[in-house]
Design a protein around this nucleic acid. Structure first.
Lengths: 199, 199, 199, 199
DNA sequence: GATGAATGAGCATTCATTCAT
DNA sequence: TATGAATGAATGCTCATTCAT
């Protein structure tokens, strides 16, 4: 199931293609409404091949989550641990998560529509990882509150839930061909967040 | 389709029970993962009875949406058309939608997990009704921007999407037995919204 | 079930309308594919009303058959027992059955598509009545063969089955708005029958 | 859809068995009154297996039709394009279609009872193929009429509908254990047809 | 006479998964 | 590695009929 040690560097096109098509289809019609047959047909492979690379349909979803969770945490860590004032870092982190979300809008759609379909254990582990991500973000808010640059009369947790609700819902309204680019929406969202935190 | 002819006032217990159990189950495990059999068993009626009152499983979902959409629009209209400055009215509307959302958290969960499962036409009509609701809310923001009491450098549409993302995601984290009451969360959310709009 | 003694002469519109709509629908989509609900909706009455006038859906079909069987037997008897040579009478009977068939094309369609759906006993009684009809027709053929005006080297039964196959299949190809009137087709069919019997 | 890869020569027993049992059951009780469960039970396979080989119950019926249509067209072409006068060829074709019809009486029964149950598109394609068959037969009649060996005062189309009505109705009265063999009935039918066409 | 809510058995179809090859 | 035939349980839905009112 894990990426097989492919010493030659071959890009495992089958596995990759399966994940890509599954992502597209899950985002388009939802996890439950996408059949394994549709996924393998779209990827141009057979069912047997899919069950060779993945344990189950659930496993496919889990892998998609793993990919996006790793990516987001990596980018947040880079910004949060980087240079700059807490205001600058929170602004950058907020703008960046909006940008990466609209750049991977399918992943985002899947996340909030289908997470509850995972087997309980898998579900729990995904939620735990997401919580760690939110905590890192919350720590930035708390840091600013302690320093007195952000208002402290709103719990940092609420601020995080407030902001990530907005981010997670991008999938329901944002369109690439709409009037605003991802960066522009990111700027507006980060502005609103920072403004709402002004003491 | 609604029927009364029930002079004693005990109105259509079968239909009502079906809607209640369907709401609970859809919120608990999602629309696609809930079978009609589970719904009718939970409601203590037969499948035939369900199909007497509803055209399909889809119709059940549609009715649930209709109920919540009507309720929200009604409450928003009352506040938005009521007395007070635009700041007061927007604050009240924002706090109120949070409160009614947590008071009907199952409806909210269903909305964002399952709406895309509706038949295209039904989906379209539900989205249209939701859009009208958002437009009424946006008009409040625009009104404040025109009056100069809200900053005008952020499109009102973005403000609405920003705020309602937060509201719609309450279902993923809010718990009745958590540290904050619905009214408290509503106050915080409304505060953040209004603060972020300060010129 | 029997036509209720309606002393006032009222035309029992409900019963009549049910039979008319059932005939139309059975011809259009077949007996099995027509639901009782569709029939009663088309007739503008309720299910309860239908079950007041008819014992079952089967009964409806049986009544339709009864009506057409009575009509055909009546017309054949009149011609066969009437004046004229056997050649004239057979020609007239053959032309007439074609004409009445195209004038009641729905009945004919139903007959051959749906008869086998009747309950065994009902089926048997309908077949028996149809056999009596065929026998009366066959007697005309036999009469001509005995008289020497028709060739006798073909069994009269085969002649009857040959001819009525053609008649019964009118429903699959004849259209009121086609190039030939029912009387013209009747003339051609009767001509072919009589010609094929020339000694 | 057909698959072989069966070097031993025992070709696709599952698919074949399903078609055979479906043919028998559709003839016996009609298409609508035969359940998929009855078919697969009779064929000794599971429902899943049936849906592996056929797209739907409709598809099963369509395949049955395809088989008989191909067979009939093939035999007609052989006779019609063969040697002999047009009288000889029409007689041979007429006698032959009667013979193959009684040899595949189940197919014939199904054809006229159940064709209208097909999905509109499938229905249309089956009718089109049957029309081509009738046209080839009609061409023989027209040929004789042009040559002056058949009477020309009856439209060839009517002659074809007249004759095929008789053929198609064999299923409603012919029994293998009756007094006449298929070949004898074929001879009588062909005689009647040719006689009725004598100028 | 007439209603329409309710029944309950039955229907065609789907689908994730397994396994002999 | 990879195939695809086969499974078997589940799904949403239909429908002729009944019956209290």
């Amino acid at each position: 199931m894990a990426r097989s040690g492919n010493p030659a560097g071959e890009p495992e096109p089958v596995r990759r293609r399966l994940l890509a098509e599954a992502t597209r289809l899950f985002a388009e019609r939802g996890f439950e409404s996408t059949s394994v047959q549709e996924i393998v047909t779209a990827a141009g492979v057979t069912k047997g091949a899919m069950y060779h690379y993945f344990d189950s349909k659930d496993d496919l979803l889990h892998e998609i989550y793993g990919r996006v969770l790793r990516l987001q945490m990596e980018r947040l860590t880079k910004v949060a641990d980087g240079p700059g004032t807490v205001t600058e870092r929170l602004h950058a982190a907020a703008a960046d998560v909006v940008l990466t979300t609209v750049e991977n809008l399918d992943d985002s759609k899947i996340f909030f529509r289908s997470m509850h379909q995972l087997a309980p254990d898998t579900h729990k582990s995904v939620r735990a990882e997401r919580r760690r991500y939110h905590e890192r973000f919350r720590d930035l808010v708390s840091e600013g509150q302690r320093e007195g640059v952000f208002r402290a009369d709103i719990p940092a947790d609420i601020v995080v839930d407030f902001f990530f609700g907005s981010v997670h819902h991008l999938g329901t309204w944002y369109h690439t061909d709409g009037p605003l680019s991802g960066a522009e929406v990111g700027a507006h969202f980060a502005d609103m967040l920072l403004t709402s935190l002004r003491p």
